[in-house]
Structure formats: structure tokens, C-alpha cells
Design a protein around this nucleic acid. Structure first.
Lengths: 135, 135
DNA sequence: CCGAGGGCGTTACTTTATAACACAAATACC
DNA sequence: GGTATTTGTGTTATAAAGTAACGCCCTCGG
């Protein structure tokens, strides 16, 4: 899978990705399902199956602490490998960023332990600038 | 358990903490519930309420990517503030560690953004040394 | 005494995610 | 072309994780 080109998406995958991209923020699988009722979606599995593939392709990230999914901010994130998220608990805004040095340090730790790293989850909860100042 | 670092636990909190401590690894809320049936536990809420407090006290961590909970490895983790976890997907073993430099870098990023950080989740998925070598 | 807050027990419920089964479409291979 | 294999799809049913709402019983400070 090339980092620059997206794989060919199936119809369902394209619908789910479109829904997430259009949202401009994270959506739960069931929220996506509701959005896609008019496109013929009837069951959660249709969404989860598409999401599994999109996550595998690096086009979508799963936010573990929200049980939600978000389109990758980098249109071809697979190259980056790891991403981090700052999640505002007030307004729900999510910022994706790539703290390479921090990730290097974590990877170094795993290598020292003989731990073979496959996936890194970094999620920061708090209050975004806008919400913190509008207090 | 030190009276200085730990608050007085209620009966339910002590039971849940004991269950988690004895497990030597993560447990889901429902697994804890099953373990405590003989102690009179009947409903998930009894577990979740205790867990909420234990997490608040820093004695228990929630593993977001497993929907599970684990007793803090440091008996008084509240001081450390943030922890990271390496989760073996083969044997389920979880190692807690405290990557202070990586956390500092993440905190610096949030400060630059004006993001007020309240909670940090770092979870590494992969294969532990023992499982990787017993291949 | 009493009243406010915290913890507790229970029922019912919502949200999140998978299992199992059957069919269809694309791909691979000779 | 024909056939095996994989991959995607649709559906029903069910499991797993988490919460709302209610009422009761403590206990602690006034």
C-alpha cells in the first residue's frame, strides 16, 4: 500500500469515509450508521467492517477514549505511523498532531524491553484554548 | 496501604481494589463483578462506582484500548500523574511505566497550543519479549 | 435534632461491538 | 472458460460495556 495513493475503496468504505470527512470531527460508529441510512445502511456491521479497513489503510483513526472514529488529518497518514490527539472535553474538538520525539522515546523504551511495538495510542484530554479562555 | 497516600476506602472500593490487585493484570468491570458475586455484588454500577473513585484516587488506571482496569503498579501512583502501558496482544500482559520525557514533550505541545491538559493516555500495543521470542 | 452529602442497592435501559450464516462479486489459477 | 479462493455484503440475533433514575441508609457538622 503506497503512502500517497489511497487504495480503491469499496462503495461502503467510500460512504463511511465521506461521512467522517464531512463531519470535521469524530463520530461514533452508530452516528455514522444514522447518517448513512438513506444510502442503504441498515446494520452496525456495515459500518464496523468499513471502519476496520479504513483504519488499516491509515485513513481513519480510532479514538479509544471516545469510542469514536475520525478521518486522518493528513490525507495519507499511513506514512506517519503514529499520531496523537488532543481532545477538548468542553467542545469536543479534536486536534491531531505527530509528536515524533515523544514517539521516538516511547519506541526506544519498547526496544529496550524487547517489546515489539505495533500500535501507539496517545490521547490527551483537557480544555482547548478557545474553551479555556471563554471561561 | 498507607493512610497518608490513600484515602480510606469504603467496603465496595476495598473489594474492587482487592480484586484488581489480586488479578495481577487488567480486568473488565464485568469480570470484577463476577469475582465479587460471593461478596454480595449484583449490579455493574456497584463496580463502576468503586472504580470511578479508585481511578480518581490514582490507585487504579483505566486502559482505554481494552475497556479494562488495572491496579496501579506504584502503590500511590497519584504522585506520578501520568503513566504509560505496554500491552501484549498475545498473552495480555500489561507493563506500566512512566516515560517522563515523552510526557514532558507532550505537555510542552499542549502548553504551546494553550490547551489545558487534564489527563494523558498512552497505550502501546504489540508483543512482549517473552511472546516474541517464543515464536 | 436534622439536613446535606456520600455511599449503597436495584431495575431498567442505552450504547458499543460481534457472532453466525448466506449470498454476491472480484481475483487467481490452470 | 471453468473453478477455487478471497473479499465484500446484507441480515438477524446477541454479547459486552456503561448509565439513568429512584429510594434508602448512613454519618458528620451545625
Amino acid at each position: 500500500m503506497s503512502a500517497e495513493t489511497h487504495p480503491e475503496l469499496t462503495k461502503n468504505q467510500a460512504l463511511v469515509f465521506g461521512s467522517l470527512s464531512g463531519a470535521g470531527g469524530p463520530l461514533t460508529a452508530y452516528a455514522i450508521l444514522d447518517q448513512l441510512r438513506d444510502d442503504g445502511f441498515r446494520a452496525p456491521l456495515q459500518v464496523y467492517r468499513a471502519l476496520d479497513k479504513l483504519v488499516e489503510y491509515g485513513m481513519v483513526h480510532r479514538l479509544e477514549s471516545l469510542n469514536a472514529f475520525v478521518a486522518c488529518a493528513h490525507t495519507g497518514c499511513a506514512a506517519h505511523g503514529a499520531a496523537a490527539f488532543a481532545i477538548c472535553e468542553r467542545c469536543g474538538d479534536v486536534s491531531e498532531f505527530t509528536p515524533e520525539k515523544a514517539i521516538d522515546l516511547l519506541r526506544n523504551w519498547t526496544e529496550q524491553q524487547g517489546f515489539r511495538l505495533s500500535r501507539t495510542t496517545i490521547e490527551l484530554r483537557g480544555t482547548c484554548k478557545a474553551c479555556a479562555s471563554s471561561n
